[in-house]
Each structure stands twice: as C-alpha cells, then as structure tokens.
Amino acid sequence: MEHPKSEIKILTMAEMAAQGQEPEILFWVGCAGSFDERAQKITRDICKILNHVGISFAVLGTEESCTGDPAKRAGNEFLFQMQAMVNIEVLNGYNIKKIVTGCPHCFNTIKNEYPGLGGNYEVIHHSQLIQQLIDEGKLKAEGGESFKGKKITYHDPCYLGRGNNVYEAPRKALEILDAELVEMKRCKSNGLCCGAGGAQMFKEPEKGNKDINLERMTDVLESKATVVAAACPFCMTMLRDGVKHIEKEQDIQVLDIAEITVRVNGL
C-alpha cells in the first residue's frame, strides 16, 4: 500500500535551519514512534498526512530525546527534569512555536509539564491535527480503502482522554468514514486503561488474576467491532497483544487514527 518513500519529504530541524528556513510545525515523533516497528509505520503515516496537505514540517531526528514521561510517572523526577531541560534547550534553540506529537504521553508532558521548566509551545496530538484538517476541508475520506459497513470502535488513551479531555478529535477522524462507529462499554471518561501507563510498559505487571489488556478485550469483543482504533503507540502494543492472546488476529484489526486516515485517502 505504501508509496515509494522518495515521495515523502522529511527534513530535520538541522537541515531546515541550514537552509535558513523555519517549519510551520515540528513533528515530535517520540521514542515508540522512532524505534517500535509498528509505531514507525504510524510515524511515516503522520508524515504522509502532513505532506499531503502541504504543511511545512520538520522532525528533530537524532536530536530528539525521550520527553522523560516514563521516568516521571515512575517517580524519577530527577531524570524527568534532566530530559525536559535538555529537550527544551533544543526546542528553544530552534525557535519552535508549534508541535504535533504522535503519542499522547509526549503530548501531555510537553504541553503541560514543560511550560513550568521554560518550554512554552502550542502542542497538539496528531488526532487533533487530523480533526483540524477535516474541519478545514483539507482532509477527506476518499480515494483509498473503504471502511464501509465495518464496525469500528475507539479506545481512549488515558493521557489524551481523562488526562487532557480530548475525546472528540479522534472520533471525528472516524466519523467521516462510511463505517459504523460503536462505543465500548467503558469509553470516554470511563475508558479502561490499556495497562501500559505509569511506566507499566517497562515492567512486569504486579501480581493479579488477569492482565489489564485482556480485561480490555472483553469490552472489544462485546462491541463486536472488527477494527479497534488507537491513538497511542503504547495502547497499540497492548491492544495488539490482547487481540493476539484471544486469537482474534484474523477478525480484529488494531489501527491508529493516522493509519486509517492514510488508508481511506489512499496516501
């Protein structure tokens, strides 16, 4: 499905600066988006969307570093602030004003926790960017794969939903599909966590009788959806593991909002 990569032009801030240019927006890729194979694909899809609508953007490339989110949630405030201050120095050095992130955790951290340390930017999550583009008529749902008649449900990431009250933007990206949008029993502010937050992604779960992502699978199955839409690379991993565990890989797809947008528009 993917177009030859030569079609997407991805410049780093350093490259832009060398040309004496400043992009309209910085795309903050995040660690998962940079290293996790599945998330890398979503990263490229976000670039495709930016490219398609003609927004001038750049990435930090190897100058990007962890926002410090997992360290902060785990209680390591030192490490968090070290990361934050170094990142802020880089961002301020490039005179960054506006940032779009591919991850709700990066989004929350840069938007809410960097200002107190000297980093003030307008920060949006990629689902909000997609919503804006749809509202402006720049993004449609045509020219690509059809989701017609498919049952789609959306899993709210904690740091986008409860953490920052972003519930409608990702749903907007799904509403324009010719699909049947269904909500899970636990959705929006009642949404159940995927189990990865608070640095749980990087440790074994504590003793219990079930993994949280498997608990979430009962909601997914009950919704009878064949597509589970995600908006967070960590939720993506947890949901895919869950689907694999209940052996429904053939029936249920887990796709990011950006991937779905790219697919319906044939980008």
Binding site: C158, R162, G191, G197, E206
Partner: peptide
C-alpha cells in the same frame, strides 16, 4: 504503589 498505571480513572 507499583501496580498503578496513572490512568486517572
């Protein structure tokens, strides 16, 4: 304490 996912529910 280590069981929390900081999900804010």
């Amino acid at each position: 304490l280590w069981a929390c996912t900081t999900c804010n529910a």
